[in-house]
Simulated scan of single mutants.
Amino acid sequence: MKSTHSGTTTAYMPGRFSPPTRGHIQTMLWLLDQYDRLVIGIGSCYEVGTVRHPLLASIREKMVLASLHAAGASLRRVRVVHLTDFPDDWDGWWRHTTSIPGIADVTHFVTGNEADILAVMRAKGLELPFALINPEKEDLGAFRFAYHATDLRRAIVEGNYARFRLIAAEGTINLMGLVGGFAGIRRAMQDAGTRFVPGRQAADAVVTCEHAGRRWLLCGYRREGDFSNVLAIPGGGINVYESPVDAALRKLADETGLVFEVMNRGVEPIHLRLGGTRLCELRTLGILSTEDPRLGGSRGGSAQAFHIALDCAPEDLGPLPDGKRSGLYDVAFRPEEDVAAAGLAFQQMRSVQAAGLCHDSGPVR
């Protein structure tokens, strides 16, 4: 039952959810019980491979949504935005966090972070344009759960599976192995995880066709900038507040004309539909990071890669449009062996190799 707030109410809950615990999900369920809609801000969305940020934000988002679905929540009432980290710039982080798309519709801001948020707000004399909800001081009743993500990470490092099962959200439990979470968290806790590199953050789409013993890769030539006139897979920069998954699918549609509809983003791989009839999946390949400009380009940064495997011949998909305004030209499904011989821009060959293609090639030509 909703509370007696007048009008439509929207609660906005930012957090790192690193990884999601039962406490996080119980708070979200309580909010959905009290308010009409819930906006979840996945914080530190590019941070990965560290003690505080062991998993990619796209994986944390998936774990949250899977947990809410398992609890019977209506995901139509839930929206997720990705929030950038601002080390040593609290004011920049605050402006970013409170400027999400649709912020005018938010009626309640949710946080129980006393040290990093509430105390700083009081010291700066900040007043929110919406009501403040502190779950730590609310009577959550049956939704109360005491453990935090720090306890969960510690249980994993100590190999205490019973405690892990007690604290972890259902989606975290179910997806941990599929995304290599146990090993990733252990590496991060040893300060040995794969980090993101500051700069341009991108998402790449590895799209393959496999039919009658042959494999093809969707790629084209870059029009300008770094690696101009070099073969590249579809991809590009992630917009502010945008999920890397949505960025990869957006660039894929812009550069190839192939439009994929997300059917279920709370599973790994994500379920998609192409052209209204062909069901397929999008698998997370991970993040590529380098500080070498010969591979990362002049703007630096990192790239998150995803793989869509289609079980058909390229001609079954019809002709691809000539995207004159896109960053690629002469886009086509090219035989695997041709791509291996030609090479790809940036670190993209590593993503293609992670998808199981072109293992005899070099990383870039």
Rank of each mutant, 00 (worst) to 15 (best):
N264M: 09
H24P: 05
N160Y: 00
P129Y: 00
R350H: 09
R299W: 08
E127N: 10
V51Q: 10
L274S: 04
A205I: 11
D89V: 09
L83M: 12
A313K: 02
G220M: 05
E281G: 02
M263C: 11
K251S: 08
H211M: 09
L357Y: 10
G23Q: 10
G102C: 04
V78C: 12
D246C: 06
E291I: 08
I173N: 07
G7D: 12
A354L: 07
D322L: 15
W93N: 03
S3T: 11
K124V: 12
S298D: 14
L272S: 01
T150K: 07
L38T: 01
G323F: 14
T284C: 12
W90T: 02
A247K: 03
D151V: 01
L282E: 04
G301F: 01
N239T: 09
A342I: 04
L217R: 11
G177E: 15
D322Y: 13
S3K: 10
R37V: 03
D139E: 14
T10N: 03
Y35E: 07
C280M: 04
G7A: 15
F306K: 00
R95E: 10
E136Q: 14
G72A: 14
G296M: 01
H53V: 09
Y46F: 02
G362T: 12
E337R: 11
A168G: 04
F130I: 11
V51E: 10
T9V: 07
A155F: 07
V106N: 11
T208A: 06
V206P: 15
P101M: 14
L231F: 01
N239K: 14
R334P: 05
V262S: 13
S228W: 13
A248G: 03
P101K: 11
D311S: 13
A149P: 00
I238N: 04
K2D: 14
K251G: 06
R165E: 06
M263N: 10
R365Y: 07
R365F: 08
A11Q: 05
R350W: 08
F17V: 01
G235S: 05
A149I: 05
P135N: 12
T208E: 06
L288R: 14
A119P: 03
E61T: 13
W30A: 11
R294K: 13
G343A: 04
A341E: 01
F333C: 01
D311N: 12
R273F: 02
M63V: 00
S298Q: 13
A162H: 00
A149N: 02
H96M: 09
A342G: 07
I133P: 04
G266W: 13
R294T: 08
K62N: 02
T107R: 12
A355I: 10
K2E: 14
K137E: 12
E47V: 04
H307R: 02
W30Q: 09
A70P: 10
I25E: 08
L344I: 00
N239A: 12
G257S: 05
G43T: 03
L310S: 05
P135G: 11
L126T: 03
L65Y: 11
F86M: 07
D116R: 11
V240L: 13
Y35R: 08
V120Q: 12
P87T: 04
K251Y: 15
F306G: 00
A253W: 03
K137Q: 13
K137G: 08
V120W: 09
A168L: 04
E315W: 15
A345D: 08
H5R: 15
